[in-house]
Every structure is written in C-alpha cells, then in structure tokens.
C-alpha cells in the first residue's frame, strides 16, 4: 500500500510565452503510515505536487501508482481515488457552503454515494474527532471562529475516511494556539488511526516537531528527502534557496563551532535542551 510517483513532469500554459515547468522528473515513494512534511517556498511546486496525488491535476508525463494501480489507466476510478486520498486545501474554511455544520460535513460522504444515515454517522464521527463541541453541530458554519471553521473543513475531508490525508498549509493565518491545536489534531489522527499524513508547510519549526520524513521542494524538483535531522544538516544550502532551518539548528551548529560539543542534529527545543544540559553537566 503506497503512492509511487515515477518521473512525473508538469508543464503549465504549454506553447505560450508563459510556459512554466512546475514539476521536473519527480520520483517519490510514499509508504503507508508515514508522517511526511513537504517544505518549499511559494512557487516551488509543492502545491502542484499534492494536487497530482489525488488526480486533480494530471501530469504532463510520467506515472503515478496508488496501491499498485496506475491512476492514469482509462478505467481507473478517479472519484474513488479522491476519497482515498483526502486533500485539505489552503484556507479550507473558504469552501464551506451549507446552512449547518453537520450538512457541510455530510457533503463528502454523500458524494461517495452513501445514504443519509451512513453519511450522518460519518459526519458525526468526523466532527467528534476534530473536537468540535456537539452543541455547535447544527449551527451555521459562518458563525464559528477562524480556528473552528478550519476544523469543520478538515472534518469535511475526514468524513470520507481517506487512507491518506494531505493538508496544504493547515496553519496559515492561525494564531499560535490555533496552530498548535490543528497540528496536535493531525498528529493524533496519525497516531490513532495510523493514517498516512502529508503536511505541506513553510514553517520548519512546525514540521521538525511532528514529522518523521521531510521532502524539500525547490524549483519544481525534490531537493532533499530524508529524516528531519538529515535534511536540516544542509541548513546552509536551505538558506541559500530561501528556506531556513529551525533556529535551534543554527544555535547548535554555532555552539559546536565555539568548541562546545553539543548534538548538531537536534531540531526541536526539547532535543536541544537535553543535549545542552548533558554537555554542561559532563563539563562541570
């Protein structure tokens, strides 16, 4: 069970002066149950990449296999792919449209062909899993706070019971508390339901804290792909392309340069703290 991308290319506005190659020869394997962070600045191709994974955008060349099947086969069920690979867009609260929160979350399951009861059950479950108070279920989604709206929108995708959940900048525009709530929610999904999660972000610090694999996109290509600490070792190269490693990565390298033997692979506050304390204690 996996998603495999084989030499995927995507070209915009072919044949005009504005032709842009958004993706260049992407080869990736996304295994079941992984928690992946995709990082890249605006225009690096990361949003285009994820829209390929559920077939919303069709590659100009190359192949994509979902669970061993070529999704570009003529008789491939694209609609089913979209329910198996759930995609939460940036600012997903902007697509809410129903009169009640509950009805809005039912939209996905109903499109899957489920009847009213089944869809309702799915919606109920999804809303519960995003932690929205039950008293709000039958209110208008437009009366909620920004963070709550976003959780409803995520529930709208979860209700389709996807195997893979992709989120494009799920924390954009939220305040620190709202951001933590959403990220913790996603981490919980991953842990409890063993869902494959792909988190698109430009915050290195968020990503370092949660994911177990980072894919760095730059100029339509995969620049790095590996464990967070492996990727952040290239902090100088990352900076050169307009991305920054977490602040602690810099600090740890600078400490090392000054002759203090801390662990340069630390990427979170927790890891950095432990490493610094260890060094300080062994020194005294």
């Amino acid at each position: 069970m996996s998603i495999i991308l084989d030499k995927v290319n995507y070209v915009y506005s072919t044949g005009t002066a504005y032709e842009i190659q958004a993706l260049k020869d992407i080869n990736l394997t996304i295994e079941d149950g992984q928690f992946i962070g995709i990082i890249g600045h605006t225009g690096s191709g990361k949003s285009t990449l994820i829209q390929h994974l559920n077939g919303l955008v069709k590659a100009t060349s190359g192949a994509i296999y979902f669970n061993g099947q070529d999704i570009y086969d003529e008789d491939y069920n694209m609609k089913e792919l979209r329910t198996k690979v759930g995609l939460v867009f940036q600012y997903p609260e902007h697509q809410l449209f129903e009169t009640t929160i509950f009805d809005d979350v039912c939209f996905g399951p109903k499109n899957q062909g489920l009847n009213k009861n089944e869809a309702g059950l799915r919606a109920f479950e999804a809303l519960k899993s995003v932690g929205l108070p039950e008293a709000l279920y039958y209110q208008s989604p437009f009366d909620l706070s920004g963070g709550q709206k976003r959780r409803v929108a995520i529930a709208g995708v979860l209700a389709m019971k996807p195997e893979v959940l992709i989120l494009d900048e799920p924390t954009a525009g939220l305040d620190p508390k709202g951001r933590d709530e959403i990220l913790d929610l996603i981490a919980k999904m991953h842990k409890e339901k063993n869902m494959t999660i792909i988190l698109v972000s430009h915050s290195m610090e968020d990503v370092a804290k949660y994911v177990d694999r980072i894919i760095v996109m730059n100029d339509g290509q995969v620049m790095y792909d590996g464990l967070p600490r492996e990727v952040f070792r290239h902090y100088k190269e990352l900076e050169a392309v307009g991305l920054a490693a977490p602040q602690v990565t810099y600090l740890m390298h600078e400490l090392q340069e000054k002759g203090i033997p801390v662990d340069m692979d630390a990427t979170t506050v927790e890891e950095a703290k432990n490493s610094i304390l260890k060094v300080m204690q062994s020194n005294s």
Partner: peptide, 11 residues
C-alpha cells in the same frame, strides 16, 4: 474552490 470541492467528491 472547484478543485477543493472536487477533492470532496463533487462532480
């Protein structure tokens, strides 16, 4: 928006 609704199975 169209793409986002298509991701939710809209046709």
């Amino acid at each position: 928006i169209m793409k986002a609704q298509m991701a939710r199975g809209a046709d």
